[in-house]
Design a protein around this nucleic acid. Structure first.
Lengths: 239, 239
DNA sequence: AAGTGGTCTAGACCACAGA
DNA sequence: CTGTGGTCTAGACCACTTT
């Protein structure tokens, strides 16, 4: 009824979610929101739409619901549910500025493990990009990305110290919307530690990720090594 | 239509979800499901109910949806979204049998950090329970749980080598439905390593958890140390 | 053009919490 | 008892993909 000139208007449930999130930020923890029926009236939408918005806020740990009692502002959460985020976004949450230093970029045969991740043959070629990731100028992570060479012709000609996800989307229409991750604790060897400016024997989080597109097809196989003293994983889990 | 003699019949969307999950298990990855409208007809429910069921399956990574095209069985996932699970459940997924060995159980003043986690005063007393967790008889984790002593009178008289969550729910009506977790990579010191039968300097995942009830009130503050060589975190993330 | 998922409405009944 | 969230229905229109 209002404005539709934008490229694509956000769905109402998203607008309602954001509007509610702003209101909730001004509430004391554990204070009650208006009832779903009232919110439907005041926001001019149906109760079903309100529920979609509250579902999202509940998943994110912003509110909690008690049947028969109401919906309440959650306490100050130390974290949200884990979601797929870029390194840049990840650092922003922590209040740091992200940057990258390219270590190497080349094209090599995939080999068994990477081929398995990407659903290609071991002899097929992959683009391999290794970068140091920095937070406020301090090395915090070493990352190696593998991509099926067939899918990204000419990738090596781009500036790979910028956002790789950005290039993949803009140039090749590849969008990672889902990922499978495995996190382990490891002790860095001499070479790894040197790259991150740490003494050998230091602890690190090793994160292996397979990035998938909207159709569940593998796009990337990436291994990241995060300094254990500067990085942690924070997330909420639910029953 | 079928059986309703149970204490509480599961909601239709859950029944539909489980029924669909069983069907999908027999499908080839990437093959299409029937349309939402068809599923609504064949399952005898409205499309809205089907969508709730498919939302859950999509969140769990069992199916993926492509607007305008359809809903498809996902590829073999290495993991699901992280959810709140007990140590026993966690080990079962890995095909191991869980057991516990009680190290110590006592009552002490909370101290600043723990008090902060539990929302009590630093002088207030907490029950502290330390246990070794074993998988197939092998020590895999050392865990220390803190609970506000006021909330669990007589807890120390129970058999604490069994399920602590079970005791909390059965004896005190305390149910952890949500938790905030922080995961770090650390190197074990001599004492920690000895308890887990590892050489000093080995890598470990340190997981700090604050368990919350349905009303977002803290119930437990727990620190766990998992052997890095035997334990990893696997999970799917989404945009 | 036809079919799909994405969104949205305006109702309804139920189980539960709280006064 | 009243009000709440939890579930469910039977429609509708839109944006998108596929033929």
């Amino acid at each position: 009824m209002s404005e539709q000139n934008a490229a694509r208007p956000a769905p109402k449930h998203q607008q309602v979610r954001d509007s509610l999130a702003a209101e909730i930020r001004r509430l004391e923890p554990h204070s009650a929101l208006a009832s779903e029926r009232d919110l439907a009236t005041t926001h001019g939408v149906s109760r079903a739409t309100i529920r979609i918005a509250l579902d999202a806020l509940s998943d994110a740990g912003v509110v909690y619901r008690v049947q028969g009692a109401g919906t309440f502002a959650a306490g100050p959460a130390i974290s949200k549910t884990l979601s797929l985020s870029s390194f840049t976004e990840d650092m922003e949450v922590r209040g740091w500025t992200a940057s990258s230093r390219l270590l190497a970029a080349d094209q090599v045969p995939a080999g068994g493990k990477i081929a398995d991740d990407l659903g290609i043959a071991a002899e097929d070629e992959v683009i391999r990009v290794s970068r140091i990731r920095l937070a406020d100028g301090t090395p915090i992570c070493m990352e190696t990305v593998h991509l099926a060479a067939d899918g990204v012709p000419g990738l090596l000609d781009h500036d790979l110290s910028t956002s790789l996800y950005g290039i993949l989307e803009a140039e090749y229409g590849l969008r990672v919307v889902r990922a499978e991750q495995v996190v382990r604790s490891v002790v860095m060897d001499v070479g790894e530690a040197a790259l991150l400016g740490q003494p050998p024997g230091s602890a690190a989080l090793r994160v292996h990720r397979i990035g998938l597109d909207q159709r569940d097809r593998p796009i990337e196989s990436t291994t990241s090594m995060y300094r254990g003293d500067m990085y942690d994983l924070r997330f909420a889990v639910q029953r």
